[in-house]
Amino acid sequence: MTTELPVLRTERLGRSIGQSLLVSDVTIEVPRGEVLAVVGPSGAGKSSFLRMLNRLDEPTSGSFSIEGRDYKEFLPRELRQSVGLVMQTPFLFPGTVETNLQFGPAQRGRALGPQEINSLLERVGLLGYERRDVTTLSGGEAQRVSVARALANDPVLLLLDEPTSALNEEAKMGVEQLLLEIVHASHLTCVVVTHDRAQAARMADRVMVMEAGRMRKIGTVAEVLGA
């Protein structure tokens, strides 16, 4: 067995603004192919933690590395291409579904061929949607497009911030199911924030509990959430 570097490793990672501590002292490792759920009450710092991993916010203490490489060694845009982020709201760009899928690769001067577009759409269950204007999509469909848009960059780590909490009950299960399929089929490494413990149990291999910016517990689903 080779000792592979973890895809994500954080080392006492923290962020504070002025006097307020958003995230403090989080040290974790996420090996390749693992799904880690982050749960905790509102305001616990889950989103703040995730945003640092995509460097949308700057860590103010500690550090993290992606596949063994310190985050500061990446150009911000390089890091963001390797670490996909799907937010609670899709925030699609105006235009068609295809415009949105092309956006990430275009930043590196690459254009996706029709085949690649089709295979992305197939993965999110939206085959044939490439010409659709994004304003005509349902909430669930829009969120699927934002997942496909992140996957178009072929990330080594996928961050999901409450990916289903803005959806209605029916769309929620659909998108969750789809995310599970994608993650398992592509053996993706994934950190998913959710306030829904049942969802965490369904999706994750391990669970981390955050409270007041700190990591309270981390372990397998059975250990943390109890059976």
Partner: peptide
């Protein structure tokens, strides 16, 4: 931020 997150 969606654009930034995609590497723009």
């Amino acid at each position: 931020e969606a654009a930034l997150a995609l590497g723009a």
